[in-house]
Design a binder for these strands. Structure first.
Length: 681
RNA sequence: GCCGGAGUAGCUCAGCCGGUUAGAGCGAGCGUCUCAUAAGCGCUAGGUCGGCGGUUCGAGUCCGCCCUCCGGCACCA
């Protein structure tokens, strides 16, 4: 039997699952279920990413053994996946023994291939980001993302010769245009490859939480690298050769668009180095925004999927996410929109159709129907079936759903035209009524069956009512064909999806989840599988030796920015002493001249008066301020910063401005401007 | 700034290799049946297809320039 092996990104355990994470799992689940329907021997794997320093820390804070903490989180994740009806077959935890074996094996192979070499790294390291920072990445000596002081570390690192695989990767992309989809993401990677790749660090020294390098037990595999390997762990790499040969390479890695680089550059290069085949395809889905905004836990907009699921079960949410968001692009979720779609798609259309068909068959024929060939609707159902199949092979999940809905709409029209209630009044139309009823029922059944991968539970119920249930454990795509023989016993039952009152008079049962204040916001969320919604505009932390080209390929803990920690809740041990604060030389300054830095988007070069002297300072505020408007203005600066070059201009100091997440900076200003040079403290 | 994508009815979007009166769904308005969850069905949107110019017998549909938005990268010290 043909096989189909797909995976989703594994999740960073410190960050609870939310709508964005759920979206990835749901769409992957739809793909997996469809594959099973088509008779493919399907293996669908997910998992948790646990070897993060933050996980270790968090566990300690809670007074737990790290593994015990991860056990707890696993339960939580599994609980959510269960509630969402995600049919994964295996769940890989990176702390499992089988994963350690796989990691050791592939790293050893890479080492033996001569692709791993020893080097030293010295520099800043932000524990929260779990990434190296270059001096230029720091703001006021702090990690720009976490506002925490990075550690200066000096350690032995092992590097992977990623550079060596630049050309092989280019060739692979050229030979396999389908390797990375959708095209937008593919273009980005192609461009990255054009620029060439740099080697990357794949280890950390002096840490216990992680998997030791087989050739140097003092070092641990860098968490991002560790995480990617889960895909082969799942199929027995290093443990069960036969199983591995049976399933690898994976047919599809479903991931968020922010981590395409890891999956389309680093991961394939690792596999090439180890002499293994590359996954056939990687699909980078988009984000699910909330009311047009990126989701943010601290803003209370990280929608808890369970909120929707709690009231309606998983299917309405699953349908919404799959039907409303063209797969591959970003989408938007709002409760208003959700309710609108619920009423239109489920209550008014599919649900009502099932009700009216069942009611008529029950009333006019005692629930009995004789199967027979169909008319125009049968033709439409057949073409919808073909369209759905075609759409699914392109991962155009929304199109597949639309095809099924075309049949639902047509069936409603058909009923209105045929007017079974009129036929029922004339005994001589009995035969015609039989035909009409069956045609409507069968078209409804087919449309529903096509939706099974999206709404497995609801569809199973619909099929039961329509008298031709299929085994939910072994649904068959063949069942979406018109059945012309046999007898049906149709069951009339209560409404599947009662209409929601959206007039506003009645509070809707669903609500927006606001992060439970008692739940500490995770410090940070790296992990190879940052959830889409949480991966906002984070700055990819650089891996040592990696800059220009490689930096982008660096495991960018995008989520960092996604979880803007409540600014007030600074961990106690990260607070500063007054002496430390006093080291900052904050001064009042006056802008003498200001001009935009040519060819830059946000830089403004200013000549400022700091009382004792004049100096040049460059600030990234061009998007918020016109240079002319700055002249004469009194601002606040950090005066004792080391000089830095920006676009070739040396900047001596930094202007202070409020910088909202994703918004424009607002300069600090004074109601009654003090003299330039005045100390601020 | 560079690269890529997008800009079509109130909303969300289809419109392939250029060709009759530019479409769908939702919302809204009107009408209507009554099997059904006050659901369904029908009709209604007169939209400069972002703007300007060009190619062509003919252009949302191709070319050039411009504007706006999004994403990635390059500078947010």
């Amino acid at each position: 039997m043909p096989r189909f092996f797909l995976t989703t990104a594994i999740d960073y355990v410190n960050s609870r699952p939310h709508l964005g994470t759920a979206y990835e799992k749901i769409t992957a689940d739809v793909i997996a279920r469809f594959a099973r329907m088509r008779g493919l021997d399907t293996l669908f794997v997910m998992g948790n990413d646990e070897h993060s320093q933050n996980v270790f820390r968090k566990a300690r804070e809670m007074g737990l053994d790290p593994v015990a903490y991860c056990d707890r989180m696993e339960d939580e994740f599994r609980g959510v996946w269960r509630a969402l009806d995600i049919s994964f077959d295996d769940f890989v935890r990176t702390t499992e023994a089988r994963h350690r074996v796989a990691v050791e094996r592939i790293v050893q192979r890479m080492y033996e291939a001569g692709d791993v070499y020893e080097g030293a790294y010295e520099g800043w390291y932000c524990v929260s980001c779990e990434a190296f920072k270059q001096e230029k990445d720091l703001v006021e000596g702090l990690c720009p993302v976490h506002r925490t002081r990075p550690e200066w570390i000096r350690e032995k690192n092992y590097f992977f010769r990623l550079s060596k695989y630049t050309q092989p990767l280019r060739d692979h992309f050229a030979a396999h245009p389908e390797f990375l989809q959708p095209d937008v993401r593919r273009n980005e990677i192609l461009r990255l490859l054009e620029g060439g790749l740099e080697d990357i660090s794949i280890s950390r020294a002096g840490q216990a939480w992680g998997i030791a390098l087989p050739f140097d037990p003092q070092s641990v595999v860098y968490v991002w690298v560790d995480a990617l390997i889960n895909y082969i762990t799942a199929v027995g790499y290093g443990q069960d050769e036969e199983r591995f040969r049976t399933w690898w390479p994976a047919d599809l890695h479903v991931i968020g668009k922010d981590i395409t680089r890891f999956h389309c550059v680093i991961w394939p290069a690792m596999l090439m180095s180890a002499g293994e085949a590359l996954p056939r395809q990687v699909y980078g889905h988009g984000w699910v925004h909330f009311r047009g905004e990126k989701m943010s836990k601290s803003l209370g907009t990280a929608v808890e999927p369970l909120d929707a699921v709690g009231k309606f079960g998983p299917d309405p949410l699953r349908l919404f996410l799959v039907k409303e968001i063209p797969y591959g692009g970003d989408g938007d979720f709002s409760w208003e929109r959700f309710e609108e779609r619920y009423n239109a798609d489920l209550a008014n259309n599919l649900g009502n159709l099932v009700s009216r068909v069942a009611a008529m068959v029950d009333r006019y024929r005692g629930g009995r129907l004789q199967a027979r060939g169909g008319g125009a609707l049968a033709g439409l159902a057949a073409s919808a079936r073909a369209q759905a199949l075609d759409a699914m092979t392109r991962f155009a999940l929304h199109e597949a759903v639309a095809a099924a809905y075309a049949v639902i709409g047509a069936t409603n029209e058909f009923i209105a035209q045929a007017e079974p209630w009129v036929l029922a009044k004339s005994p001589d139309k009995a035969s015609h009524l039989d035909e009409v009823l069956y045609e409507a029922a069968e078209a409804t059944r087919i449309a529903s069956a096509l939706l099974w991968p999206v709404m497995p539970d609801s569809v199973a119920e619909i099929l039961r009512r329509l008298g031709h249930p299929f085994d939910p454990r072994a649904p068959r795509f063949d069942d979406t064909q018109w059945i012309a023989s046999g007898e049906r016993h149709v069951i009339k039952a209560e409404a599947l999806w009662p209409r929601l009152d959206t007039t506003g008079a009645t509070p809707v049962p669903v609500r927006t989840s606001v992060t439970d204040p008692s739940t500490p916001v995770p410090e940070f969320v790296p992990g190879p599988a940052p959830t889409p919604a949480s991966a906002e505009q984070a700055t990819p932390p650089a891996i040592p030796a990696a800059d220009a080209a490689a930096a982008p390929a660096t495991p960018a803990p995008a989520p960092a920015a996604a979880e803007p920690q409540a600014p007030t809740s600074v961990p106690a041990d990260d607070r500063l002493g007054i002496d430390e604060f006093m080291r900052l030389d904050l001064r009042v300054a006056r802008v003498l001249e200001a001009e935009r830095v040519p060819k830059s988007k946000k830089l403004v070069k200013m000549r400022i008066d700091v009382g004792s002297e004049e100096r040049t300072i460059v600030a990234g505020i061009a998007e918020a301020y016109e240079p002319e408007a700055l002249v004469g203005r009194t601002i606040a600066i950090v005066a004792n910063l080391k000089p830095a070059k920006l676009m070739g201009i040396e900047s001596n100091g930094m202007v202070l401005a409020a910088s909202p997440e994703g918004g424009k900076p607002e300069l600090l200003s004074f109601v009654d401007p003090p003299a330039p040079g005045t100390r601020i403290r």
